[in-house]
Design a protein around this nucleic acid. Sequence first.
DNA 1: CATTCCTATGTAAAGGATTACATTGCTTCT
DNA 2: AGAAGCAATGTAATCCTTTACATAGGAATG
Lengths: 345, 345
Amino acid sequence: MNKRATIGDVAKLAGVSTATVSRVIHTPDLVTDSTRKAVYSAISQTNYTLNLAARNLRQQRSNAIVVLVPDIGNTFFSEILAGIERVASSAGQTILIGHTAHDHMREEKYLNNLLNSQADGALLLNGHLPASVATKIGETPGRRLPIVSVSEALADQIVPHVGIDNDRAAALVTQYLLDHGHRRIVHLRGPVSNILTCQRAKGFARTMKAAGLQVSPDMFLDGDFTIESGIAAASVLIAAGSMPDAVLCANDEMAIGLMSRLAEHGIHVPQDVSVVGFDDIAFSRTAQPALTTIHQPRAEIGERATRILLELIAGDNDASNMITTLPVELVERASVALNRGFTAT
Amino acid sequence: MNKRATIGDVAKLAGVSTATVSRVIHTPDLVTDSTRKAVYSAISQTNYTLNLAARNLRQQRSNAIVVLVPDIGNTFFSEILAGIERVASSAGQTILIGHTAHDHMREEKYLNNLLNSQADGALLLNGHLPASVATKIGETPGRRLPIVSVSEALADQIVPHVGIDNDRAAALVTQYLLDHGHRRIVHLRGPVSNILTCQRAKGFARTMKAAGLQVSPDMFLDGDFTIESGIAAASVLIAAGSMPDAVLCANDEMAIGLMSRLAEHGIHVPQDVSVVGFDDIAFSRTAQPALTTIHQPRAEIGERATRILLELIAGDNDASNMITTLPVELVERASVALNRGFTAT
DNA sequence: CATTCCTATGTAAAGGATTACATTGCTTCT
DNA sequence: AGAAGCAATGTAATCCTTTACATAGGAATG
């Protein structure tokens, strides 16, 4: 028992050929009861386990998909992952999570290493497709590379995408603030290189303009989706000396960071300033006050994306589902108040 | 360009043998400048990419380690993962994250599928080793299976472990509460099947006894490490009609859930009841009030565990590091008050 | 009874890399 | 000049499965 048993060892012990052993594993129905039993017994005697590297090599496929996640610590992604896993595992696919940490090198590493031999397809939650891979997509126009972008859109729409309409979601929440009488609204953005950030900022600006409000650069604060950047943004507001009516944060982490810093300074949400977030992560419910935010159907986003990916892998090249947009929902909690002295029109 | 180029195609185009191409990729120094250039050029002309399945098969190793995580959404794990990745990637290992969701079937699937051919070793963050794998460890006493348990200990100490001393950490924080004059302390546990839960509960009970306090079943509440179970525990306390002096929660999520529910009922932390958590996740800083908790050196835990795993894979079977215990730190924030009418002895 | 068809199994060829060993020229030393 | 040693490259075996094709025996059919 020094080395791992191979299919040959099992075959010898059971007195059959390797082909038969393989059939017992793969398609048991093709094999007689008696031989099947003999093979099973030999398998357990030898402690045989399949060598997946060999199978993958032979079958030219790995039954695994790789999921690129920019930040595992962000709870927003875990529910998407849950949806992905549900569909993938019921289709017999293993999922491999690659943590990219917003690092383009890692993205490329995971995609090159895995896509080209260890995985059959990829789900991109990171909003970035390395140039080397993008090139390859262009080169094979017939057979699309099995890649789907999820939640965060790519700069070029060259692979199918599943997500929400960020522009309209931002417009929705902006209008909600306007309806509550807020006029001086500040938008705490994500990193400007992020597509999602741009879409949300656009929806915000458009809605403000439509309400007859001037959009100026000082209505924007820059963050990077972390709690810390929310805290920093609060410090900026505090230093400025006057609070806006409301702050629209591009995600919940920043909103929570912002609120905690405001609380330290005795500034009350929503009495002194209203705050809204984006994503509806678990901690938005436990924030003080509970955070009003935009809820995304995360599990469904993951499920849909995975189904599309599986179709691509199977070769069902239905171009109809290039863009899947799922609806969002505004979750009203306690972080937005009616503006002082405002009366609904 | 219908099929993927193989090393043979590159060799033909460059006018060399496959061995030379392999050497250019693997050990470029062994090859002349001119041939190296020719091979590189052939590689880019053919769009050649290595087939890792073939390499893994031949080399009998995958240069990948699998990390089993029980709950990706729990922010506690992400910093451990960051430590793991730092060490692993500098050693040229890819890491594959398997999300087990506390599901023993999945644990087994990931370990069997991956350990036996797609990964060289495993890091267990899930506190459970499937029986089928445990058996195999016993069978090969000479060559230890490359597995390391991290943070959450296993029931049987059969693989190296890296983590903290949960018993003493719980004792530390319990003593801290006692020193602040609290006597009626309730411990909100994790699931009782969890080793970590038992260790922390033991440290708590021991310290209470040492202070001359009776330990009774009604000093324990049961949770499952989720925010929801923290909220539920708060409801139980509220329904009971009287608050204890302090609540020691087995993790931060539950502490945060608990505090949010108390706040809804107008019960103030720490004036009415003190609360402490465990783990020091990012959101413990933004909680209202900021949560006093036990900080674990998460990144270092991940790094140490990975180093030990790499040694095991390399065959450096140094039995000296079966148990690595790292120090914890009590982070004082704002969720613990001096008990009313208490004077330090 | 001869033919055909099926079922259960075996034989052997991929699949794409790595690598031990062999080979071929050179350089260098005596 | 002959021997030895070295550097660069080639040849071919190997890793372990899957699977197309072949075969053998038995049942069904005419």
